[in-house]
Amino acid sequence: MANIFALITGLIFGFGLALSGMTHPEKVLGFLDVAGQWDTSLLFVLCGAVGVTVVSFRFITKLKAPVFAPIFRLPESNAIDKPLLIGSALFGTGWGISGYCPGPAVALLASPNWELWVFLPAMLLGYVLHWYLFKPQAQKSAAAAPENTKAEPPTCG
């Protein structure tokens, strides 16, 4: 059942991304380009999205369990550490260069052009690089953790 809702919520998410203008990398760059003709419209995407989650998540986190799963899977770390800062800076650099972030890169499979066929494989390569560089650590911590957490992905992003 949860799987069906994964599909449905993904569908709403993808429609929202496309409607909002986030799947236009040039529009994203227009938003990030404060020194050019600054296009502020994408500020409203963030406001709209966070405006909803900041209210709804307050109520949801008070529930004992989600509807179709035994527990909520929240990120374990609250640390503001080097990986967070360096990772976010690297992501910001890539985002600011091309105007693509992961969600729109996936959504654009609905209307791919040559840019996506360069960006998307490169992005996946980035995930693979990270996995092989940091996998030993992940396995170590997974081995130390209870068994059922072993196959658990990083719960964020």
Binding site: G16, L17, A49, S56, F72, R73, L74, G103
Partner: peptide
């Protein structure tokens, strides 16, 4: 208007996903 409505849909989808499956709708994750 499109940006705002699109944002609300994204936030709404993240809300439903979290409420129903207990997971954070983070695309990179």
């Amino acid at each position: 208007a499109n940006a705002l409505l699109g944002g609300v849909l994204i936030g709404g989808a993240a809300t439903l996903f979290f409420w129903l499956t207990g997971r954070i709708a983070g695309i990179s994750g």
